[in-house]
Design a protein around this nucleic acid. Structure first.
Length: 769
DNA sequence: GTAGGGTTAG
């Protein structure tokens, strides 16, 4: 199916109007010298003649050799210095040799100064500089330089054209690129694979797909790269079928072709097809190279195929590919995605102590840190981050995003603020990922106002950022505001995803907004094509139950055939506690124990319920059963951050250095609270609370200890922020209301479910949580 | 020309 379009047809079709001329400058309408944004020094003919011609030749050839090695800026500068001292023509060939060295990351600006001095300015020095800037992502500068070159009437060569087309491609500047293509055709630059491919890529990147296809058809010198560009182009627009067809018909099916199609399939979410193709490659395809290995490892990670990942790792080690930065980093991520943090640490630490030059880069640190965060090991993430800072590894947005998320879950506002400050100090602004993480951090650390401020400061908001702020308002119990934000998001044509609906539904449930909840639950399916998942059903059960519609909630569970999910019964049980419906509570917790006989929580709940009904025999039977089976429950603990230090407590904890003071303060405090009308609420234990629920320890629950410590360690009137890993128990909730009244303190408590703002004897949750 | 790290709920 070869296309029959000729290059002349292509040229005449609808290129911009050009000025036919032999002179380079006048044929580019957009590169007019008057519009030049930068000035170039005129060539300088006053060059000193070389002192030792042979020495200069020798120096030149060593520069060429050095250009193939890695060389630091300081080394280049000392060479430069030596050349000047020896009287070599740094404005001529030697200058070009040095320029070639300077055209590396970080030294381009120095290179450009040198360039201004060079008097023999044919296409070569221009090309070195243009391709240098384009390689380093400074595409605008590349184009400006090209304009300067044309203005000086220097004729570009194929390399120059390929480089500047790359700049146009990356800037998606269709106009300029087509003008250059036109010039190439008109000036009869003979076809060459490198140039042709850069033209092809330019059209693909600019989205001019029709052009790309037609141009591909005209190619006489196409190679594997041309085919790959086209295959990649189809994959880019999601046309998997065409890309597969092209791959099947490809004349050149080398490693890179396989890599292109396999990677493209992965990018389009066709992970299993991609894996099949990888197996096919093993059978009939060429040998894997480092690209293939890196992708294979990544694929094993996304599919969480640990066994496969390990197998590939073994092969990687045998073949020595673990020194490749990409392969190593893919390995780190693969293991973190499979939850094998020890294995990732192993790969990571080997690169830390490596002697072969493949040292861990900041991307490896980032992957490790992200892995810890994603596996719920925030503390280790923070430790690694501090070590990263100590060792002077550069920190970027990726790292900070993970760290912000670690601060969120740890609820450590001080460090979170430092991350925010760090972002501002680094000066590269906040992208939408980081903004979402920071918004969430402020909200989860108790500061909704800062979360909102950060949210509003972003010009471009995506679903995730919106969902973060909606979820923040929901968890702080501001249902109405959350709904308003959700509607504002819809007005701004942002498509909500399944998580956005979890956020808005939970907002409805925390705010008791039944009608609205139903509205969004329906809209989700009817208008937004989001099928309800377990989380959405849970929110609905929660919403109905909390509003006191217990029967409706139970019916909802059966109508939607979700009665086999323990979370539903847990939600219903929580509602039973709020509305003190013991009968349904017993029934619901029996369902729970039946569904999951190994779940400790269900036993604790049921035994608590029996106890509350004074059925102590049943209660203790259950407790004994738990003991016999060796079932233990996650201990409840609370923490408070004061002066940059986190103080953590478990129930009855006496390990804190100031335990003495804390306990004697609590004794006195409870004396006063009773005077205000507080009495222990042992009747309200129908909740999924932890071991510390035991009556004798009620007054020394972890949250009470943390709050007491907060009170005695801060000046009166200071608001307190306390975090807890489980849900707050009914007695503590009641007690903290009185504490806020007695001490005139604002107390913000984050539990496993939501925020409670206690103020003057009231809680923002209105006792529904 | 083809490869690696980040955010929201539960």
């Amino acid at each position: 199916m070869r296309k029959t379009v000729t290059s002349t047809e292509l040229l005449n079709s609808n290129f911009p109007r050009l000025f036919p001329s032999s002179s380079a400058s006048s044929s580019f309408s957009f590169f007019h010298p008057h519009h030049l944004p930068i000035r170039f020094l005129p060539p300088n003919p006053n060059l000193p003649s070389p002192v030792h011609p042979e020495a200069q030749e020798l120096f030149l050839s060593s520069l060429k050799t050095l250009s193939r090695t890695t060389i630091t800026l300081r080394e280049i500068e000392s060479l430069h210095c030596a050349a000047t001292k020896s009287g070599f023509a740094v404005r001529g060939q030697v200058g070009i040799g040095l320029l070639n060295l300077y055209a590396k990351p970080g030294s381009l600006d120095v290179g450009r100064k040198l360039f201004d001095e060079i008097y023999e300015r044919d296409a070569l020095p221009w090309t070195i500089l243009i391709s240098g800037f384009s390689r380093n992502g400074k595409h605008e500068t590349g184009i400006q330089l090209f304009a300067g070159m044309i203005a000086e009437d220097t004729l570009p060569n194929r390399f120059t054209l390929a480089s500047v087309l790359k700049c146009c491609a990356n800037l998606r500047d269709l106009g300029k690129g087509r003008e250059i293509h036109g010039w190439i055709l008109r000036n009869g630059i003979s076809p060459d694979a490198v140039l042709d491919n850069s033209i092809l890529e330019f059209y693909v990147k600019c989205g001019a797909f029709g052009y790309a296809k037609r141009f591909f058809g005209t190619l006489t010198s196409s190679d594997a790269i041309s085919w790959n560009i086209m295959i990649g182009a189809y994959l880019e627009i999601g046309d998997v079928d065409s890309s597969m067809e092209l791959f099947g018909n490809s004349l050149y099916r080398d490693v890179s072709s396989w890599n292109t199609i396999i990677n493209g399939l992965m990018q389009n979410g066709f992970d299993s097809v991609s894996l099949q193709l990888l197996y096919r490659m093993v059978e009939i395809g060429p040998q894997f190279n480092h690209f293939t290995y890196s992708m294979a490892v990544t694929l094993a990670g996304t599919l969480a195929l640990l066994a496969l990942g390990r197998q590939i790792h073994g092969r990687v080690l045998r073949l020595g590919y673990e020194h490749d930065g990409y392969v190593r980093n893919s390995l780190i991520s693969m293991y973190t995605k499979c939850g094998k943090m020890e294995a990732s640490s192993f790969v990571f630490s080997r690169s830390l102590h490596s002697f072969d030059g493949s040292v861990a880069k900041s991307i490896d640190w980032s992957s490790m840190i992200a892995g810890f965060v994603q596996n719920g090991r925030g503390e280790e993430a923070l430790h690694l981050f501090f070590r990263m800072l100590q060792e002077g590894v550069s920190v970027d947005q990726y790292t900070l995003t993970s760290i912000a998320s670690a601060c969120s879950s740890a609820g450590i506002l001080e460090q979170g603020k430092q991350v925010h400050a760090c972002v501002e100090k680094l000066g590269y602004g906040i992208d939408v990922f980081l903004a979402s993480a920071i918004t969430d951090m402020y909200a989860k650390c108790g500061s909704l106002t800062d979360a909102r401020k950060n949210f509003e400061s972003m010009d471009r908001k995506n679903v995730v950022l919106w969902t973060s702020i909606i979820g923040s308002y929901a968890s702080h119990g501001h249902g109405r505001e959350a709904i308003q934000l959700f509607d504002r998001m819809l007005n701004e044509n942002i498509m909500p995803n399944e998580i956005s609906f979890v956020a808005v539904l939970s907002a409805c449930s925390h705010g008791g907004l039944v009608k609205e909840g139903y509205k969004y639950f329906r809209a989700m399916q009817e208008n937004h094509n989001v099928a309800p998942g377990i989380e959405h059903f849970t929110c609905m059960v929660d919403l109905l139950g909390r509003a006191g519609l217990l029967d409706e909630a139970r019916n909802f569970i059966y109508e939607n055939s979700i009665s086999h999910h323990t979370v539903m019964w847990r939600a219903l049980l929580s509602a039973c506690r709020v509305h003190q419906n013991v009968k349904m509570a017993v029934w619901a917790s029996e369902q729970l124990v039946q569904l999951d006989p190994d779940d400790v929580g269900s036993y604790v709940l049921l035994s608590n319920i029996y106890a509350s009904q004074r059925k102590f025999a049943e209660a203790s039977k259950l407790r004994k059963l738990m003991q016999d089976r060796g079932m233990t429950k996650e201990p409840g603990w609370s923490w408070i951050q004061l002066r940059n230090k986190v103080h953590a407590f478990v129930a009855g904890d006496r390990s804190h250095p100031e335990a003495e003071g804390i306990y004697s303060y609590l004794e006195r405090l409870f004396g006063r609270l009773k005077g205000l009308g507080y009495s222990s609420r042992n009747d309200l234990v129908l909740h999924d609370v932890e071991e510390e629920q035991r009556e004798s320890m009620l007054s020394f629950h972890s949250e009470k200890l943390a709050i007491a410590y907060g009170i005695i360690s801060t000046p009166s009137g200071t608001p307190l922020r306390v975090m807890k890993n489980l849900r707050v128990c009914a007695d503590c909730h009641e007690a903290i209301k009185y504490i806020s009244q007695d001490t005139s303190r604002e107390i913000v408590l984050r539990d496993a479910h939501r925020f409670h703002h206690f103020k003057q004897g009231e809680c923002s949750c209105g006792d529904y949580w």
